[in-house]
Design a binder for these strands. Structure first.
Lengths: 105, 105
DNA sequence: CGTGTAAGGAATTCTGACACG
DNA sequence: CGTGTAAGGAATTCTGACACG
C-alpha cells in the first residue's frame, strides 16, 4: 500500500473539527491561517478541508508565535525558510542552480 | 504535546468517509466489521466514528481474509491472538498470572 | 453471512459578511 | 490584524430495516 510507509505524519486525512480538538484552536482560526498562507490543507472532491498530523504540529507552532505577538506575515516567512531546508524539490533545485552558476561563471 | 510522539499511527482521528477512500471498502462494510468486533473505532461526543491509521491497516487485512473466504468469526480470533502478542497490558497480566500460578502451585 | 440501498434525522463543514479594535 | 458569530446551504454520518442469497 502506497500510504502505508512511515508517512502517516504527512497524509492529509483529518477534518477541521478534529484538528480543532487536537490543537485547541477554533475552526475560525484554522481557516484564517490558511487564508494567510500559513497552512495548506487538501480538499475532498466536495471541498472539505483535510489536514495531516504535520499540519497539526505546524498549527500549534503558529499559535505559539501569535501569542508571542508575531504577525502572520512574519510567521509565513519563517515557515518558508524551514520548508527549504527539508523539501527535496528545493534541494534539487539548489543543486541545479549551483551547477548553472558554475557553468556560466 | 501528549499526542505528538511517534503514535500518529494509533491516534483515532479519521472519519469513515476517508477510511472508505483509504481502504476501498464501503462504509457499510466498515461498520459491519465493527458490529462483528473486528475493529474498534472511537466516537466523538456526538457519535461520529474515528479511526486510526492502524485501524486502516487492519481493515485492509480483514478485507483480504474475507476475499480468501475466511469467516468474520475466524478473523476475529486471529486478530485477538495478535493483540496478545503486542499489548503491554496483556503482557503484564501474563507475567502476573505466571507468578500467581507459581505461588499457588 | 456479508453487503447494497432508501429513509429520515442529526452533526459537520463551507463561504461571505458584519463586528470589534 | 486576528477572531467571534449568525446565516443558509451543501456534504457527511448515524441507525434500523428490507433485500438477496
Amino acid at each position: 500500500m502506497p500510504w502505508s510507509d512511515g508517512s502517516y505524519k504527512i497524509k492529509k486525512v483529518i477534518s477541521i473539527g478534529t484538528v480543532s480538538e487536537l490543537t485547541g484552536l477554533s475552526e475560525r482560526q484554522i481557516r484564517y491561517y490558511e487564508e494567510r498562507k500559513l497552512i495548506f490543507p487538501e480538499r475532498s472532491k466536495t471541498g472539505i478541508r483535510k489536514y495531516s498530523f504535520q499540519d497539526v504540529e505546524t498549527l500549534i507552532e503558529i499559535a505559539n508565535q501569535l501569542e508571542e505577538g508575531v504577525l502572520t506575515h512574519e510567521i509565513r516567512k519563517e515557515l518558508k525558510r524551514r520548508e527549504q531546508l527539508i523539501d527535496p524539490k528545493v534541494v534539487r533545485n539548489s543543486l541545479l542552480q549551483g551547477q548553472l552558476n558554475a557553468h556560466f561563471k
